[in-house]
Amino acid sequence: MTRRRALYLIMVLVGVITAYPLLKWVIYTSRKPDLGKLNAMRPLISELVETIIPATDSPGAKEAGVADFVIGKVIFYLDRREQNFFIDGLGDIEQLSRKGYGQSFMNCTMDQRVKILECLEDQQLFLHPLLIKVKRKLFGFSFISYLKAYTVEGYCTSLLGATRCLNYQATPQSYQPCVPLVLLGQRSWATK
């Protein structure tokens, strides 16, 4: 291989590597997100939020109505690019599930569902921090980060989450600076 040809090949390779995210960026930014899909996927979203925060001795995210919260967040809080990313992420869940367990996410056991979400989160964990930064700049936070953050916020601010899992006091009256945790039932306050 001549030097010139090697250089040429490297340039083509660099071109392809940079063109892919660019192309993806252009597509994700310009494509009108199919928000109707979100409502159609409500049952899946319900199971996803319940996988993140399941019913235990206190209600889970499904009963707390967190699916509606997540859908509202995607519609009113994300830009077009992030919305596309989120909707595609929902599709990826189904793919992962079929690849890993040969069945739809809806039919998976709780353990299998948790494993699928962990798989998505791990992909993020092993990325180089700089790469994560670049990715965020281009595409916003990952699907799994948004799903998890919105589920946490939706659950912890819901009537059931705040009052039956966390500890909520609308009108505390006084401030007691140092109270034994056992007297407060071990759970966090719902609001700051």
Binding site: P54, K148, K192
Partner: peptide, 27 residues
């Protein structure tokens, strides 16, 4: 000064499910 609550815990805790919920909702 304050203890970390769900607002901060939700950002740092890995994982999902029963254990995650328990850690998320404890100070």
């Amino acid at each position: 000064g304050e203890r970390q609550e769900w607002q901060e815990r939700g950002q740092v805790l890995d994982g999902f499910g029963t254990v995650f919920k328990d850690q998320l909702t404890k100070p």
